[in-house]
Design a protein around this nucleic acid. Sequence first.
DNA 1: AACGCGGGGAT
DNA 2: ATCCCAGCGTT
Length: 364
Amino acid sequence: MLQTLSQPPSRNLAEHLLAWYDRHHRELPWRVSPAAAKAGKRADPYHIWLSEVMLQQTTVQAVKPYFAKFLTLWPTVGELAAGPVEDVMAAWAGLGYYARARNLKKCADAVATLHGGVFPDTEDGLRSLPGIGDYTSAAVAAIAFNRQAAVMDGNVERVISRLYAIDSPLPGSKPTMKAKVALLTPADRPGDFAQAMMDLGATICTPKRPACALCPLREDCLAFAEHDPERFPVKAKKKDRPVRLGAAFVAVTPEGEVLLRRRVETGLLGGMTEVPTTAWTARIDGGDTAEHAPFEAAWEPCGTIIHVFTHFELRLAVFRARTEKSPADGWWEPVENLEAQALPTVMKKVITQALPLAFAKNPN
DNA sequence: AACGCGGGGAT
DNA sequence: ATCCCAGCGTT
């Protein structure tokens, strides 16, 4: 015991956490369990990369079905690189942060053409690829390639800030916290250590009502000693969310086709598909919101939808019209094909408001 | 360093 | 209502 007590606490802590991880880790589709790893199974870098990009600011539960769909459509990074970006956008529709999908395709192209179809196996090499930043490069390097990289995401920030009772606010304290993680990360099993920290943050060291009684790091935790773990991490307060208004137009032909457009590649919902809308502004000029419709028709108001984005709330008045194919930007898509389009959630809300059965399994 | 960028689940 | 989620790229 004297030996144990005289060891650096960081080494003790990592071993303690890994022992907890061996018993309590979550089973995830892209994860190689410690038992399987001991039997010689290795993580597939393509699977780890794909899952990590999907998991950026996105919950495990939301990612699972998309991860399965992508592996079915594109079993290897080479097949993903060979496919058209439009198919990737359509498959990504609903998952959000669509720049990730464009960069996912760019990254697959770079791996295929610049790296012979094999992912770089170092943190720096990965960091140079599109859509891979500080977190994802460290995570893939550690989990897929067993590199001693310091992995820090929102979960780890919370664990570290509590462990050391860090009072300075995020994001300014991030370098300090990353240095702490680097000191804790073991040369042996760095990937499991990273996943253990994230599992701990996701299941025990939660934002609200953390289960400290079950925490393997309780004895080392300064926030627990203070009896107020929820005080951490300290964050700068965020701005309030403004409201933007606009109108959306769902035009339907007698043949059951809907007018669609493609949004510009950059910015909000970049490269995704939409129905025509007015600009989204703070106020709607006058009361006649149908005046900016894509063409003259008997536009019929059919209610308003509300959609909340990260930095503003959008309220769209929805208009519907039965019409012949009128000259307009975009294309006319049969209703039964809408499910296969790259329609973000806000546009599915608009279309459903105008055509309640548009996305039903049997539209009749 | 600050900001833009989705969508959904938990509280 | 509010917070948060295995963050990244741009300015």
